[in-house]
Computed example of a mutant assay.
Amino acid sequence: MKLTGRTILITGGSAGIGLAFALKFLELGNEVIVTGRRQSALDDLKRNHPKLQTIQSDVADPAQIAALARRMKAEYPKLDVLMNNAGIMLHKNLKAPAADLDGLMTEMNVNVGGVIRTTSAFIDILAANEGTVINVSSALAFVPLPSAPVYCATKAAVHSYTQSLRFQLEGTGVEVIELMPPVVKTELSTDLANGDGFTLLTTDELVKQSFASLKKGALEVRPGQAKLLALMRRIAPDFINRQLWKASKRLLPVRAG
């Protein structure tokens, strides 16, 4: 992947992995635009990093995605990188019926629907500019963390979708990359800790390893424990599945849902 001279849109870029990548891309001299759901968080981000461009937008809302695409195409016609990063993770107890059946689909709407809809809304400008799509899935696409069953299912879906997208875009000039982080020290992983069967990666180390892979032209970027989990999924799936179940049991909510 060409890492300089790009115009880059990162969804969910006001914190965590998205912000870490935004700041690194900015450091390399790219024009970077980030989105987030909360305007207050974006305002704080803009004050701290005035060179970043910010736009309020929610990837769970198709109307907001369409509006974002119209604005980006008008204001940033050179847009050539889309990083689908926005995501949420919820721990769920599946032992009884959930009180909020609609709420069960929240992660699907954000993590899967957001990726598919946003990619579709921007595919024309990315093709015109021979750009790059970076979809953020997870090492948990290979091996699920049972306390977060829907989250892991969404990341497996993003992994599969990204592979199909890559095939369909062959010959268009659009590069399709998948970033598959392990457990990273962000707001998403506050319930997880080193020694629970996880080795948490800092965002700094994630960026360092990921950009090294991107420079080499990797299409599947597997930093930290992601490589190990992919390997264990092949050679000892029962063992690694059981280990993650043991590590995550304490994270189950008391109530179903």
Rank of each mutant, 00 (worst) to 15 (best):
N48Y: 09
L200H: 03
I125R: 00
S57C: 13
T119N: 07
A230H: 12
L140M: 14
Q163G: 08
Y76W: 12
D124M: 09
G217F: 08
P182Y: 05
G5D: 15
M232L: 04
E107Q: 09
I17H: 10
G36V: 07
L206N: 06
D238S: 11
K92V: 03
T7V: 14
N111C: 14
T132L: 07
K2E: 13
P237T: 05
G29T: 07
P97I: 05
F198K: 00
R6S: 15
F21I: 06
L90E: 10
F25N: 04
Q64C: 05
V32S: 06
A226P: 08
T119I: 03
L200W: 01
V81A: 05
K216H: 10
P144R: 00
R222H: 14
L9S: 15
E75S: 00
M83C: 10
M83F: 05
V143C: 04
I235A: 09
Q168C: 10
T190C: 07
N48Q: 15
L82A: 11
A20T: 10
A230S: 13
D124C: 09
L45E: 12
D58M: 01
K208L: 13
R6N: 15
V184S: 00
L219N: 12
D100E: 09
N129M: 12
F142D: 00
P62K: 04
A141H: 07
V133L: 06
N109K: 11
T186H: 03
R37M: 11
E31I: 08
H49R: 00
G13I: 10
F21W: 04
K24N: 14
V112I: 07
V110E: 00
L252V: 09
G173R: 02
P97Y: 03
P144S: 05
K51H: 15
R255A: 01
S210Q: 03
D102T: 01
A127L: 05
A96M: 10
G195D: 12
T106A: 07
L101Y: 09
G114R: 01
I240Q: 13
D196W: 06
L228P: 13
E27N: 10
M232H: 05
S40A: 13
E31R: 12
L19V: 09
S147P: 09
L231Y: 11
M72S: 04
G18M: 08
L229V: 09
